[in-house]
Nucleic acid binder design. Structure first.
Length: 564
DNA sequence: ATCTCATGAATCC
DNA sequence: TGGATTCCCTGAGA
């Protein structure tokens, strides 16, 4: 509980893509002014004491023209605590916390988000908690035997600092999962809340397909059959696992955990975690009541009975098989725990280790190469890292405070490893709370060095105005995919494509070495964006539907960077 | 511009 | 223990 307030390097690149129409109108400068006038004519304000006076309905985000300067009047009541004397909410593009509540970022009392030590002053910071782990003998063994496979010298992270961006709005509901094709480098799959699965070849912006009848609600997981990679396993809240041929959209129903159909929400099983264990020919999935299901992918049969692996009645949120140890399974759930299991001995409470979290665990992943680290994301606004599966797992090696706790209506945030980082350090995760980027409230996507907790880079795009809970880094290329609301974004290093020359014309890279830059500098010049894309008439086959049109943008717009 | 809704976990009684 | 109530940065459509 020491917070290392000390100065830390402010050397983070902020990657800004696209442009914003930042016609200085909403200039942050004047957000401040309070207008005491309005106070009197609010007759009812008087008796509107605590409890009643709902939302002050402040128009949010500094995007609007006339800064909706919050009226700080003693008569008004804070929408959060219902007390008089202060107001919570957006003030321009800055969100002012209710001072009577714990910090919205770190959840500790005594300060607000604005002054949270984990926020690195005016920037957008992430700070590691103190390393609490004591080294045990196992740690040393681990470090000798396994650590040696991890490069000592961490390579420079490859974060494209000059980006092209492609966007499609394939989905009619928010995107809930993303997966890159294992062999076709530019093919991205996306699943949505409605059960639709989108396929987008972003090297050919017009090649988009949406399959609408594979699932009937949330697509929670997608995994390719790497032995036959036109086939995709999907799990859904409709309670089924589907095995779908992506060329035809025709799938096989592998498993349905609601054989008796709908009997009300209290009995309806939804499948949340899913992973494939290639070595064992297993598909593992789990439901919202705490049970794990095993399926033999070769024989195409369910194996045994379901096994309770998390608190009865609580949702199992995620499953992950260890990439090097086929016997190890990691699960996480709404019971605030992640568990490590031996797949050969799966019984209730037989887990090898239990990792406690402060709240719901959104995700838990083994590291991608050695499988020896664990990265979890919890609703208590902390990313946790365990450096060694074989060490003392009682406490994480690191806790990184990061804003990703949400209030319904969003897909859970998950910190995802960069599969290309041989040092198994870099992770990407979207941020919940917005920052004031020169008068515009935007939600960045953060790149975090999980070995130190440092925010390595943050990606923002003036056109990316919605929160981006779903992110996936490409297994081979320096490419990031993002699911934000109904849109799917692809971010890739810029300047690669010859045909982008035209767009490049008025773009420039800006390096800001001093923290604060004017809006003009950051988002100088507007660009006329890309030439949207219209949908190709070529279809792949019947089952597919196409969406979009008007607001779609695909292809690329050149980008700019600001380094802070 | 304002309202409404979808929704899930935590908390309250 | 369990049903009702609450809930701080949502997003889109009416």
């Amino acid at each position: 509980m020491k917070m290392p307030a000390p100065s830390r390097p402010r050397k983070r690149p902020t990657i800004i893509v696209g442009s914003v129409d930042n016609s200085s109108s909403s200039s942050s400068s004047d957000d401040e002014e309070e207008e005491e006038e309005e106070v009197e004519d609010r007759v009812d304000d008087e008796d509107e004491e605590k409890g009643k006076g709902r939302n002050g309905s402040l128009s949010r985000k500094g995007v609007g023209k006339k800064a909706p300067a919050i009226i700080i009047s003693l008569k008004k009541v804070c929408k959060v605590c219902k007390e008089e004397g202060h107001q919570a909410g957006f003030q321009g593009a800055n969100y002012i916390d209710c001072p009577r509540k714990p910090c919205f970022l770190c959840k500790k009392p005594g300060h607000t988000t604005m002054s949270c030590p984990h926020r690195v002053a005016l920037e957008h910071g992430v700070v590691p908690a103190l390393r609490k782990n004591k080294q045990t003998q196992l740690d040393y063994v681990f470090e000798r035997q396994l650590m040696s496979q991890i490069p000592k010298i961490k390579p420079t992270f490859v974060i494209p600092d000059k980006l092209d961006r492609g966007v499609v709005k394939l989905h009619s509901r928010r995107v809930t999962s993303l997966e890159f094709h294992p062999t076709m480098n530019s093919v991205l799959l996306s699943g949505d809340k409605k059960g639709q699965i989108g396929i987008w070849d972003y090297s050919k912006p017009n090649e988009k397909t949406v399959y609408g009848s594979i699932h009937s609600c949330i697509v929670n997981n997608m995994k390719f059959d790497t032995r036959n990679d036109i086939m995709l396993y999907t799990s859904s809240s409709d309670g089924t696992i589907s095995y779908t041929d992506l060329e035809t959209g025709i799938g096989v129903l592998l498993m349905d955990v609601n054989p008796n159909g709908w009997n009300g929400p209290s009995t309806w099983r939804m499948l949340y975690g899913m992973d494939i264990n290639l070595d064992k020919g297993l598909l593992l999935a789990a439901d919202n009541f705490g049970y794990l299901y095993l399926f033999d992918t070769r024989e195409k049969v369910k194996i045994g009975e379901s096994i309770l692996i998390h608190r009865k009645g609580s949702k199992v949120v995620g499953l992950h098989c260890n990439p090097t140890q086929p016997d190890l399974l990691l699960s996480c759930g709404n019971d605030h725990y992640a568990h490590i299991w031996d797949i050969r001995r799966l019984e209730t409470q037989s887990f090898l280790a239990s990792l406690a979290h402060g709240r719901v665990v959104n995700s838990a992943y083994f590291s991608p190469h050695t499988g020896s680290k664990i990265l979890t994301t919890s609703q208590d606004n902390r990313i946790r890292v365990w450096d060694s599966v074989f060490g003392n797992l009682n406490l994480p090696s690191r806790e990184i405070v990061h804003s990703h706790d949400f209030n319904r209506h969003l897909t859970p945030f998950k910190a995802e490893w960069d599969p290309k980082d041989p040092s198994e350090s870099l992770a990407v995760i979207g941020r919940y709370i917005s920052e004031n980027y020169n008068g515009v409230a935007l939600h960045p996507i953060d790149f975090i060095d999980t070995s130190t907790g440092h925010l390595v880079a943050e990606l923002i795009d003036p056109d990316l105005t919605t929160i981006s809970p779903v992110n996936k880094l490409h297994p081979r290329d320096d490419i990031l995919a993002t699911g934000s609301s109904r849109s799917v974004f692809i971010w890739r290093p810029g300047g690669l494509k010859v045909e982008d020359k035209e767009a490049e014309r008025k773009k420039e890279i800006i390096f800001c070495n001093t923290g604060k830059k004017s809006a003009k500098e950051k988002f100088n010049e507007s660009d006329d964006d890309d030439d949207g894309d219209d949908f190709p008439s070529k279809g792949k086959n019947k089952q597919q539907k196409k969406y979009g049109g008007k607001s779609d943008k695909a292809g690329s717009s050149k980008s700019k960077i600001v380094k802070i």
